[in-house]
Design a protein around this nucleic acid. Structure first.
Lengths: 331, 331
DNA sequence: TACAAAGATACAAACGTTTGCATTAATTGC
DNA sequence: GCAATTAATGCAAACGTTTGTATCTTTGTA
């Protein structure tokens, strides 16, 4: 591997000048800069980033911590973030928390050890508070939270319009004429789900419908828990569910099909996330769409621009068969 | 940040001894090792991996290059690989080639610059040969190829049982009584698709059916191209398609639905990849399942164990509505 | 007791950059 | 024409490890 010292020797100058020439410092003559660049090209030089990182105490790696890489939502966020970061010369180190606080802490420490330029984080469900995060990252590593955020932590945040979205989704169910609308609310440890629940509640209250805690089912997030919760929802006399996730909604549909309950005639379902399967399944599932790719890009940009504000990414309701009694659904 | 020099000073020994004590060298007394470990714990020491990497000329980062992170198949591979690598103390740097050879080359150079411990790669469609890969990585960075591999490149390879799988899928269509079975074959620049085509062909020939080039449709991979190819397949009199991807199969189904052609009665479809939507859509799609998570784990293990052989991950056929005239499909 | 052989630790260089400060060369002002 | 200023480059230390070689200590053996 050719080093700046090699280039310096070839040109009869010193490594420091070569370094400055290549890094765009003003402290070098335009003429020598060109000579250096030409020589570097000729010799096939490529900067050793590890050495540069060590000296600078900062790398051009951005760490992304997500609960699970292979979840559609997160892989799309990562895809969006990687594109934007790569364009700006950064690279992406990926960590999975697998929803545990311990793995999240370990990942944060790992990233700090690589002296990453920044961290994009969507916290584990198990992390009910975010105190460990600034504790590990300190002042010098900027943090951008996305989707699952701790509002009281400093730094940029990118969130979906959860409140608005859930309000729209629930209002839609009301308009469709469903009378007793429950919710599979997700985990109350996560702000996103808390906001969805608020939106659900406000939609009911705006329509002068009672908010009934007994048909709010928490800790539902996967297919199986959705199935289980739907059993209870039926017992409680529900005829519709706003589900704060697509997978729990899927579980609910599993049960309804099994019981021979007609969708959407007898029971309405709206999910959340607009996973790709929702449009393709039968009956196709109405879903409150997030924009994970855009969210990833926004997170990357927030880091790149050094923002510290909170951005809200709109959510849109895709009305499909599972909640549309008129049968004139969008595709 | 506390360094090994700090620990050395605190104990009145030298940094080299501390380094050896912490890295498990035999050249240090058990007693001092314990003292060092205790002190390190006390002072909250964590090894600066950047410095260690620079000195060793090798990092504990493994690079993964995939065409697109957010494709379900690849995100699952990454998920599997990350878990296995993380357990072994490695971390994952992610790059997307976006199917272009240039981006792939850039990613390879980036990874070499980080002096990664290894590279897991599934090449871009645009890369029709793999000569650039060893050229950049050289002898010292081990390469593990997965899914889309160049057979003539040295190093470990993890592939699906494409030939066997396509053979099974096509045979299944034959058994179902379809008479003129075409194929959406994907890109012939990729070995995986070439093998699938061979399997398709051998299944036909084993059943004494003609192999007809005019109903082999190449360069189909996304929904839209599947739709277009299916138009031609209908014109050519096909009554079934083995599709080398799920998305092009989806496009074919789009067209069939639009034309009011009954599935599976009048036309049979089998896709490939077993993407999650295939089981949930209507009609549910038969698909030749890959095991991306396992493939990722296998790739990681091949790297960790320094293997250089080729491993074949079995594929299994999930028979669903789109190809099952008996209507007694598996879920 | 002396001497060799381990055993344990210390020394110092190296990995390839970056960067504050010193030095030299070129330019300006008076 | 000489000091003062600016521009360009050189020098050398530093980032925190790892590791080959040298040194010192202990142990075992003749």
């Amino acid at each position: 591997m050719v080093t700046i010292t090699d280039i310096a020797q070839a040109l009869g100058i010193t490594p420091s000048t070569v370094s400055r020439a290549l890094s765009g410092s003003t402290r070098v003559k335009e003429e020598t800069r060109r000579a250096v660049q030409k020589k570097a090209q000729e010799m096939g030089y490529e900067r050793n980033v590890v050495a540069a990182n060590l000296r600078k105490g900062r790398s051009n790696i951005v760490g992304i911590i997500v609960p699970r890489i292979h979840r559609e939502f997160f892989s799309n966020v990562i895809g969006g973030a990687e594109s934007a970061l790569n364009d700006a010369g950064y690279h992406v180190l990926i960590c999975q928390s697998l929803e545990t606080r311990d793995a999240e802490i370990k990942a944060l420490k790992t990233l700090r050890n690589y002296s990453v330029a920044g961290v994009l984080l969507s916290h584990a469900i198990e992390s009910t508070d975010g105190s460990h995060i600034p504790e590990i990252l300190g002042r010098s590593i900027p943090l951008v939270q996305f989707d699952r955020v701790f509002p009281d932590l400093p730094g940029a945040k990118i969130v979906g319009a959860n409140y608005d979205g859930a309000f729209k989704a629930t209002s839609h169910l009301i308009q469709q004429g469903y009378k007793r609308i429950g919710t599979l609310a997700g985990y109350m440890s996560s702000q996103a789900y808390v906001e969805r629940l608020s939106g659900y509640r406000m939609a009911l209250e705006s329509a002068n419908l009672p908010y009934d805690k007994s048909i709010v089912f928490s800790d539902t997030i996967v297919r199986e828990t959705g199935y289980q919760a739907c059993i209870k929802a039926l017992e409680a006399g529900c005829d519709a569910l706003y589900c704060a996730g697509d997978f729990c909604a899927l579980g609910a549909i599993d049960l309804l099909k099994e019981k021979g309950i007609r969708i959407p005639e007898d029971f309405g379902i709206v999910g959340t996330a607009n996973e790709s399967f929702t449009a393709l399944m039968f009956p196709s599932m109405s879903s409150l769409g997030q924009h994970p790719f855009e969210m990833g890009q926004a997170a990357a940009k927030a880091f790149l621009e050094g923002r510290t504000d909170t951005q809200v990414i709109p959510m849109e309701l895709h009305i499909r068969q599972s909640s549309n009694k008129n049968n004139t659904w969008q595709k």
